[in-house]
Design a binder for these strands. Structure first.
Length: 510
RNA sequence: GGCGGCGUAGCUCAGCGGUAGAGCAGGGGAAUCAUAAUCCCUUGGUCGGUGGUUCAAAUCCGCCCGUCGCUACCA
């Protein structure tokens, strides 16, 4: 039985359309999921949509449709985006599904039974205009001394019944968790923030609402719906069959990795493990926070209206190039800037010139001068051994970087070999050997083919379509593309298909 | 205000105690198998400022400046 690997994207909130940020999280998770599958893991990869809450209820009303119809439409749009980005998720969960309602109510009852939830009163300064509560010390003074929200909205003292989760009781257990598993929150900067937050003291968390109804009813008290974050986080359990711990999918629990945007770290690194500990369930192994994209130097925002839909970019540049760009351009965990210019530059320089041209010059040379078959190799020279050595050690280097979610480092390692291969072909000059030493020429070509093959294997998770094409061109059978097949070499004299460019250069229309 | 990150070549960044590095951009040359792609050489930096520790500091410590983030219940 192979080792399991369970990873998730956040479930995306359906009060707006999918944009580049959603695509980014999904692509990163997908690359890792594909990598782990190729590396022999039994992978469960989950994504989906978060569909409850006041904002969705309001958005549906604004659109003039029932919440369910509204969420059906937006959820379908997210699923479409995932498909277009070639996301290989094993399941797509929606929080409005019956299986999820059942899981949420089950965990609620478990938390109640454990004494972790109690009925109390939520009191605070509420601004109707902002639909939000504010702390006393956040308030500002108005003209006549009236209390105002920081946004300038009038506030009133409101008391309403609410169920609370005893978050304060889990402070020490959380700190112990972070202490014992230093890798639980990554990158380290986020870990520090969470640590500081928890150390500063935790208050109990209001986990039910009575002010709106678009949510999962609290068992035994239907006036209340569950707080959307409790609802949302439980999706990770729902998908593996909770509360049926005997479900065949439940073997994936606990999750190996929750990939999240930096704005929701706290929910995943504080509330979620606290809920799980209280419910007597194992906690996930890692929460990794990635950064945000600006677009042409500006923050994506509603007011600027510059949200980017990734799908037109897929149409224009190809899904592989876009996926590559997102993980290549910036260290995972940090923020990045998306610009047409940078995308085109990566596409032309690294994909077309470096890799595409390397494959093309090698394969078309073989087609013209080596009978279009896998060339046999003779005695190896030092330069051959150097390049083969680099290629041979590549899988381990890439695996190590992927383990740290250092996607751009993994790609950099691969590109070092690509650059070395371009240097190698220039120095060995098979076009000169063609006239003087055919055996040596064949050896050089074979070394190149083997190197390209290794590169193709390792790039599969990043650019599945293009690498499927490339691996076919270097003669790797479709059924032999797991990383364990890397050790199997190509067969001398096996026919190769006619080569065709893998990454065409992008020429900006005049 | 408190806590934390960052500030290194024109740009994006790596290095984190032992004579300043990569990619891109710029300059020169070579080659011509290839998607006019490639390869080689090369210009370029008082490593934010300042004081200290050390035989030796981008690299450790203090202070200052700039910048970004966190500092709970919309998600």
């Amino acid at each position: 039985m192979s080792k399991t690997f369970y990873l998730t994207t956040p479930i995306f909130y359906v009060n707006g359309a999918p944009h580049l940020g959603h695509a980014y999280t999904s692509v990163a998770a997908d690359v890792l999921a594909r990598f782990k599958r190729l590396d022999g893991f039994d992978v469960f990869f989950l994504t989906g949509t978060d569909e409850h809450g006041q904002k969705v209820e309001a958005a549906a009303r604004a659109a003039g449709v029932e919440p369910q119809a509204f969420t059906d439409r937006v959820a379908a749009d997210f699923a479409d985006m995932a498909r277009r980005m070639k996301i290989s998720n094993d399941d797509f969960i929606r929080t409005t599904e019956a299986r999820h309602k059942r899981a949420c109510q089950a965990i609620w009852q478990k938390l109640m039974a454990a004494g972790a939830i109690y009925l109390g009163e939520y009191a605070g300064w509420y601004a109707v205009r902002d639909e939000a509560f504010y702390d006393e010390d956040e308030l500002i003074a108005g003209k006549d001394g009236a209390k105002l929200a920081p946004t300038g909205a009038p506030v009133e003292w409101v008391v309403e019944p609410s169920y609370f989760f005893k978050l304060s009781a889990y402070q020490d257990k959380l700190l112990a968790l972070y202490e014992e598993h230093p890798g639980f929150i990554a990158p380290a900067a986020k870990r520090n923030e969470v640590l500081a937050f928890v150390k500063s003291g935790l208050r109990d968390l209001s986990v039910s609402r009575t002010s709106f109804s678009w949510g999962i009813p609290v068992p035994g008290d239907p006036e209340h719906v569950m707080y959307v974050w409790l609802d949302a986080l439980v999706n990770y359990l729902t998908a593996v069959g909770y509360p049926d711990e005997g479900d065949e999918k439940f073997r994936f629990w606990p999750a190996d990795l929750h990939l999240v945007g930096k704005e929701i770290v706290r929910f995943h690194a504080v509330y979620w493990p606290a809920f799980l500990i209280a419910a007597g369930l194992p906690v996930p192994k890692k929460v990794f926070s990635h950064g945000w994209w600006t677009v042409e130097g500006e923050k994506m925002s509603k007011s600027l209206g510059n949200f980017i839909d990734p799908r037109p970019l897929v149409d224009e540049f190809g899904v592989d190039a876009l996926r590559f760009f997102l993980l290549r351009e910036v260290p995972f965990g940090g923020d990045g800037d998306f610009s047409r210019k940078a995308l085109i530059s990566r596409l032309n320089v690294e994909l077309a010139n470096d890799l595409g041209n390397l494959a093309q010059r090698t394969l078309s040379f073989i087609a013209k001068n080596a009978d279009g078959v896998v060339p046999a190799r003779g005695r190896l020279h030092e330069a051959d051994l150097a390049l083969l050595g680099m290629a041979g050690g590549l899988a381990e280097k890439v695996r190590e970087a992927m383990e740290r979610l250092a996607f751009n480092e993994a790609l950099e390692e691969i590109w070092k070999v690509i650059r070395a291969a371009n240097g190698y072909i220039d120095h060995q000059a098979p076009w000169a050997l063609r006239k003087t030493d055919i055996e040596r020429m064949n050896t050089v070509l074979r070394v190149l083919v083997e190197t390209i093959r290794t590169i193709g294997f390792l790039l599969q998770p990043f650019m599945p379509g293009a690498m499927e094409n490339l691996l076919t061109q270097v003669g790797v059978p479709a059924a032999a593309r797991h990383f364990s097949d890397l050790e199997t070499t190509l067969v001398d004299g096996a026919g190769l298909p006619a080569p065709s460019g893998v990454f065409p250069r992008y020429v900006e229309a005049a």
